[in-house]
Design a protein around this nucleic acid. Sequence first.
DNA 1: GCAAATTAATGATTTATTCAAG
DNA 2: CTTGAATAAATCATTAATTTGC
Lengths: 195, 195
Amino acid sequence: MSPTGSSRWCPTPEQLMILEEMYRGGLRTPNATQIQQITAHLSYYGKIEGKNVFYWFQNHKARDRQKLRRKLSRQLMIQQQQQQFQQNHFLPQFPNCTTTPVWFLPQGGVEDVSRPMVSHSWNVDYHHPAERCEADKSTTRTYSRDWMMMMDHEGPTSPCCNRPLKTLELFPITATSLKDECTTSNHIPSSTSTN
Amino acid sequence: MSPTGSSRWCPTPEQLMILEEMYRGGLRTPNATQIQQITAHLSYYGKIEGKNVFYWFQNHKARDRQKLRRKLSRQLMIQQQQQQFQQNHFLPQFPNCTTTPVWFLPQGGVEDVSRPMVSHSWNVDYHHPAERCEADKSTTRTYSRDWMMMMDHEGPTSPCCNRPLKTLELFPITATSLKDECTTSNHIPSSTSTN
DNA sequence: GCAAATTAATGATTTATTCAAG
DNA sequence: CTTGAATAAATCATTAATTTGC
């Protein structure tokens, strides 16, 4: 809407290059600190926010996986077709095979390409998926405890609603029952109270 | 690990009550501003962060849907069984019905319970899913442009690493190819270049 | 009664899917 | 068609209920 800033982030070539380099280097899910640092660094090359970095890694990882999946499934298709061809070629007598095999794409397991750690000195200590199994065995998942919150809920140049977010005096909350469980009870009048 | 603070947020009864009231009132996906306000208000009753509010609504909504889905599917099962019974009762002669109907759970469409807006004065202008179709037709989804970023990447009492997050001087980025697409090229030697 | 063991709820993350801008 | 943005679904992990043997 605002003519000066486009509605979504458009990465500059340098930013993209750096992001891709870091991705190639093995970074997949940067934590908030890393995101901040990356954002700070990339902001030198153009306007950028933390959420852009966050989303970029999310999307890049997802689409990488998806690309891989697609390739693998295509491969599988070809393989299956060849098998089927051979089957039809060798056993052409049994018409009861369904002829429409369901193509199960490999759901998980295509995670890490395992490029063995390119030597760029982005040395914030992120853990590789491989080495994530050792170290502190008790807290396996502490590496991403952190989290994020950010906002730009309107254009940056909206001078209205400039009050400093005081704790409003509302919340009447005249609830009478603390634990009422029948939140969804007005929808299913079925008398089968097996639950 | 740290005995003083448990690793995850444990809502106090008041906090829970307020959250549930707001949920019952129709709030499903608060934006960042709302989350901040809610957090500010709820922090009066105990320790809480924005991400807790965010997660609470996410989870509550999802599990509500899931509960509904489960109820509906059970209902459907019973219904289908009755139908099947009737079919078997009235047409007991045709053995070619498959006898194993696939139970399609209703994937989407069970979104909003459409309680018609309870009158509690939490009047931050959030849009209902119903009225989300009108207003500014061009930007249908602007109502949640905002986003979040927050962090607590270690315990609050860790005095080490207290540097103020300067932009480090690393990022050598000796990338030679800007667009190299062959990130995943070493996996699929298949020769069918249909894409 | 009361801990250890199991199970159910639910807070927190990650992954998949969808929408829309360019 | 690519990809940034956003949401929904699935999953992981921890805390509370509860069961169970004593």
